[in-house]
Structure formats: C-alpha cells, structure tokens
C-alpha cells in the first residue's frame, strides 16, 4: 500500500471501494460560474482589445448604409447615420464599464470609510452619520443623480460623480452593520484586552473582516452603476449623444424602434444585461467562497 498514512487498509485485503457524491446543485452552480467567467472574460477582451486592434472609426458616418439590418458585413446592423452598431456597442460598453467601475470604486471607498467610522466609533457619530445616510436614501437615486449632474457640464466625470455620490449609501450601511456585528465578537474583546488601541482594533481587526463584503458590494455595484449611466443617458442628461455609451445608444435608437427597426435597441440592451448577469453570477459564487470558516465547519 502506498498511501499507508491514509487508506483504511487494516483488516481488509482488497482495500476499500471509495464512493463520491456530487449533487446536481453543485454542477449547475459550476456551469453558472463558468459561463459567467467566460462572459466576463469575453467582455473584458472586447473592451480592451477591439479598439486598438481593429483600428476602425466608430464615428464613421455612411448615410448610404443607414439602418441596415444585421448582416455579415454589419453583424449588429447599422444605426440611423450608418455607423456600425457592433463597433458602437463595443465602444459604448467601454465607456459604460469605465463609468461603472469608476463610480463603483468611488462609492465603495466613500461608503466603507463612512460605514467603518460610524460602526467603529459608535455613539453620537454613528447616530448623526446614519441619520444623514437615511436622509440621502429617502431621495430617489435618479432624482438626486440628476440634481448633481445639473451642477456640471455634460461629460463622463459628472456621471461618475453623480452615480458615486448616490450609491455609497448602501455600502456604508453594509459596512456599518458588518463592523457592528464584528465589534461584538469575542476576538475584538481579546484585542482590546491585549492592549490594542481603538485605531489598531479598527484597522487590524475590523476592516480586514469587512473588506470582502465591501469588495463584493463594489463588484455588484458595477452593473448597477452601468444601469444608472444608461438611465441618465437615456433621459438625455448623462453623456452627450455623440459619445457612444450603452445608454446613449439605446436612447438614440428610440425613434427607430417605433419604425420597426429592432436591432439598434436590442444589441446595446443585451450589452447591458449580459455583463450584469455574468457579474451577479460570479459574485454569488464568490460570496459563498470567501468565508474561510465554512470548510472547517463541515469537516471537523
């Protein structure tokens, strides 16, 4: 026997017959995770590689080829001034993703800082901050976003700021709740008893426990921020129509949809939905994975 340390060899000559069990739930989850990963990889590749490699002008107007349905030459068709929609979608996704990622990161940094302060300090700081969060939350995001955007000239960064400033609230809540729950754990008591300062407890023991949650919130916020950008742009308040983003594409396609031309709406729409689902799929799996206690609970 080679695996003398592990195999149950004593008493049996032929060795044990091992059986494993794999549940269906497990395999569908694997499929979901893999599909999501592939989709995200494809999105990232398209966004990063297509513009520099293809070297085509997404703004190239060709009025002789306007509103062509999907064909081999234009797989997604063309828009009302004859621009190739596939190219426009890829560029649009690029802008939307940029806005989404930038807004999600900014919102998460603000939210984590505010939530951690409120949770770790407690007392009146917590009360004041959380009232403020409640007040902001009671105003609809979109309305507040429009208000913020109105303060700036149209462009990419006002949209980022508008989305970030309206979306740190939920992260702040998540982080605060998590800090509060960690703060009552005996291991924080142990740190306090070991002479750790308030700062050390927050930075060394509370924040590392909260960061996975904040990171998850950030990832889940990317599609949300993309949707907000699209919504703002669709309303004509976000990016200038000339800049291709998924929102502006859908917005400019509004007219043609009524005329029976579905492709200028469908493809940008799909470009919003598919990465959203893929990110949600991966984030769900991540949420199940990142808890290190799970394994030992099952085993010992």
């Amino acid at each position: 026997m080679t695996d003398a340390g592990a195999g149950p060899t004593a008493g049996t000559q032929d060795g044990p017959v091992w059986r494993s069990r794999r549940t269906d739930r497990q395999s569908t989850r694997t499929v979901r995770v893999r599909t999501s990963a592939v989709l995200i990889a494809a999105t990232a590749l398209a966004v990063l590689l297509v513009p520099p490699v293809v070297q085509l002008d997404q703004q190239a107007v060709d009025l002789s080829a306007k509103l062509l349905p999907p064909s081999w030459e234009h797989p997604f068709g063309t828009d009302d001034v004859g621009r190739d929609l596939l190219l426009r979608c890829v560029y649009g996704l690029r802008v939307s993703l940029l806005v989404g990622v930038a807004a999600a990161l900014t919102a998460t940094v603000i939210g984590t800082a505010v939530g951690a302060c409120a949770g770790a300090l407690g007392g009146w700081v917590d009360r004041v901050v959380m009232r403020l969060v409640d007040t902001f939350s009671s105003v609809p995001h979109l309305l507040l976003g429009i208000f913020i955007i109105a303060l700036f000239r149209p462009g990419v960064w006002p949209v980022v700021i508008s989305v970030a400033l309206t979306h740190w609230l939920s992260t702040a809540r998540i982080v605060r709740a998590e800090v509060l729950s960690l703060r009552s754990r005996p291991y924080i008591d142990a740190a306090v008893s070991g002479g750790a300062s308030r700062w050390r407890v927050t930075v060394r023991h509370l924040l590392p426990g909260v960061l996975p949650h904040a990171a998850l919130a950030a990832v889940l916020m990317i599609p949300h921020a993309m949707w907000h950008e699209s919504a703002l742009s669709f309303l004509g308040l976000g990016l200038p129509t000339r800049t291709a983003s998924l929102g502006t594409l859908v917005q400019s396609a509004r007219g043609s949809l009524l005329a029976g031309q579905w492709w200028p709406t469908l493809f940008p729409g799909l470009f919003i939905i598919v990465p959203t689902l893929a990110i949600a799929g991966l984030a769900g799996a991540w949420r199940e994975r990142f808890n290190p206690r799970r394994r030992s609970e099952l085993m010992l």
């Binding site: 005996p186 291991y187 008893s193 206690r293």
Partner: peptide, 17 residues
C-alpha cells in the same frame, strides 16, 4: 487592560480568522 489576561469560551469566535 493588559494586567488581565482573558480566555473566552469559544476559541473560534475569540480568534481573528
């Protein structure tokens, strides 16, 4: 605080994972 050493009931909860 450090003049007092504390041992808690549940080692899992009282150690930073």
């Amino acid at each position: 605080r450090t003049a007092i050493g504390v041992v808690f009931q549940q080692p899992r909860l009282s150690s930073d994972p």
